[in-house]
Design a protein around this nucleic acid. Sequence first.
DNA 1: TTTTACTATTAGGCATGGCTAAGAGTAAAT
DNA 2: ATTTACTCTTAGCCATGCCTAATAGTAAAA
Lengths: 230, 230
Amino acid sequence: MNGPTATKPPSTSVGDYLKAIWEVGGSGAASTTDVADRLSVASASVTNMFARLQEMGLAKYERYRGASLTERGREEALRLVRRHRLLETFLLEHLGYSWQEVHEEAERLEHAVSDGFTERLAAFLGHPDQDPHGAPIPAADGTLAAEESFPLDEVPVGDCVRISRVKHEDAAVLSFLGERELVPGRLVEVKEVRALDGVVTVEDEDGVLHSLGRPLVDLIFVRGVAADVN
Amino acid sequence: MNGPTATKPPSTSVGDYLKAIWEVGGSGAASTTDVADRLSVASASVTNMFARLQEMGLAKYERYRGASLTERGREEALRLVRRHRLLETFLLEHLGYSWQEVHEEAERLEHAVSDGFTERLAAFLGHPDQDPHGAPIPAADGTLAAEESFPLDEVPVGDCVRISRVKHEDAAVLSFLGERELVPGRLVEVKEVRALDGVVTVEDEDGVLHSLGRPLVDLIFVRGVAADVN
DNA sequence: TTTTACTATTAGGCATGGCTAAGAGTAAAT
DNA sequence: ATTTACTCTTAGCCATGCCTAATAGTAAAA
């Protein structure tokens, strides 16, 4: 019917699980609870899907030990991530979406677009290599550029860094940071890192100071820069 | 949770049935078989869905009599048609899709995009009022412009008309017509309408003659024009 | 080592939306 | 009026994915 290599694309659900395992599992295995929390489903549903992903050859699963992606599973997850990040870029740059609105729309669209659409969109956008949150966009062949950024709280006081990524899709977090222009590309100098509560104070390019508490600090990733802020 | 007026959007399947009833039913009721053929499902599945659409208040259904859309059902169908035609326009004009490729992609995307996306896309496209096939795009408020075009075989010989619409999404038909530039906007003069087999011969703007057989002729809709071809 | 506190799995259900096979309804021709 | 040729519905089944409640496994603290 569809030629010898025809593989029907995973359902929306299967794709969501693959992405969740990839995001949550890091290099190791993803636990039932972590995936359940991320997808807002009951953990019993996750156990069920882990077994099915195993059957489909998309994940390796050991009872009570969590699941990790097979090569095929990882490819599929990265394909979705590529779509997601390209779509976010398009929504932001061409349709006038705000930084914090893009995620939800892209989340639905990524399951509906074809590979053909994705590559034409990439061309339309000029083949960007990162999305509006500063996340790297996997290449069409499944390659993902290594990230050389590190968490904001690891920066020595006095150092000047460029924000390279904000790792969150929560609307409140994104609009808080967006309003203050603490977005990828922005330069900041670290003025204080308070050990007691983890609050980090930074000075932006306009000399404005921002004090950021623990949960927020963990989401901001930076790269070192040569020059000073001022 | 979602405010007093929150209505969750119909599923992909429900939407497909609503569109099919709208397209197939005309002003009257759509039969089980017609919808089954259009959606490539078994007719038993259609009977089942007709009953469910009735329960949901989206269609009126009488056993053995077919289904017709309620006001709410029609609104929902037209919303999907609007999305579909705007998406086709975008794919063709900005992503380099060909005239015959756009349908399939739009068919999947129309179920995934939000109203917000749709209106931003409409603005991006300059609020077009017809799609690449010449079909009118329903307005955001659900209004659909009346069509004043008529079938090609009703044109008196010698009249000059403008092709306003090609009513088909079949790839073979579209590429046949596309290659000959028999597309919306094109002017043609009717040279002969043969009663015997329904073949219509037209001359295009470049003086080229095209003889079109029955099934093809029925898909081409035209509008009268004042001036002559040459 | 034995509680204790989680975390994970199993069992059983439900809604959606497909299918086939069998039977009932309709309408046109005899 | 009855046969014939459809079309339509009913009944019963299956896969996907979600849920809750009950049970089992794990690991850390006592």
